[in-house]
């Protein structure tokens, strides 16, 4: 089983950060899986670990106060957030953010998107459109499309992954809320079905609660009751 997941890790592509070209991470997922929180953690991770300059894009213009939520995080970690008014066209926000990232020479742009159920055809189409907008500025963007999956999710997680993969090319998976009692077994099914790696694991509400995925500790967590040691 560890082998299976290790194989999944091998799907991981080498991420190329080019000088002068912003590396764009597009974050997608259904409602309430923890996209915005994960973005804050991810920004912090790139900042601290690789000393990269980061910009955030508030692409969730739909949910009440989603923009404020991202801005609060941005303020806490000292990262600029590009945002429009609530209800604005997410494509326009992303376009501006791409320009800003380019002009300011940012290493990394992380784009938040509104949570959407994978069954909503129009909303899934919107993701495809946002991706096109990114490619106007940087043809190879988004270099990373991160699908967030809640560890508490059941069989539906697989449907989510499949549908999101149809609209945007998923490159990575983040499994969130693994600090609860759920073991996140659905991650197996998802990584196998999509052939993309689980790259990150979210384990709490503070900025440092994001780790790179480790197959062995994950599988140990699945089988052993003892919760400590599941996550380093």
């Amino acid at each position: 089983m560890i082998d299976l997941l290790k194989k999944a890790t091998r799907y991981r592509r080498v991420k190329i950060f080019q000088r002068g070209v912003p590396f764009v991470i597009m974050v997608v997922g259904v409602n309430g899986v923890g996209k915005t929180t994960t973005i804050a953690k991810l920004a912090r991770y790139h900042q601290q670990r690789f000393n990269r300059s980061v910009i955030l894009a508030a692409g969730d213009t739909f949910r009440a106060a989603a923009i404020d939520q991202l801005q609060v995080w941005g303020g806490r970690i000292g990262v600029p957030t590009i945002a429009h008014q609530p209800g604005a066209d997410p494509g326009a926000v992303v376009f501006d953010a791409m320009q800003a990232a380019h002009n300011r020479g940012a290493d990394l742009l992380i784009v938040d998107t509104a949570g959407r159920l994978h069954t909503k055809y129009n909303l899934m189409q919107e993701l495809t459109k946002i991706r096109r907008v990114m490619q106007k500025t940087v043809p190879e963007a988004p270099q990373e499309v991160l699908l967030i999956i809640d560890a508490n999710t059941g069989q539906n997680g697989l449907r989510q992954a499949e549908e999101f993969a149809k609209s945007v090319e998923i490159t990575d998976i983040a499994l969130t809320k693994l600090d609860g009692t759920s073991k996140g077994g659905i991650a197996f099914a998802v990584t196998k079905a999509l052939g993309v790696p689980i790259s990150y694991v979210g384990t709490g509400e503070t900025l440092d609660d994001l780790t790179e995925f480790n197959a062995e500790t994950f599988v140990d967590g699945l089988f052993f009751e003892e919760h400590e040691g599941e996550i380093e």
Binding site: V30, D150, A151, N152, T153, N156, G180, S182, G185
Partner: peptide
């Protein structure tokens, strides 16, 4: 409770 919750629903 989220309708998409899996086996974990019971513990919660």
């Amino acid at each position: 409770a989220d309708a998409m919750t899996g086996q974990e629903a019971v513990n919660v």
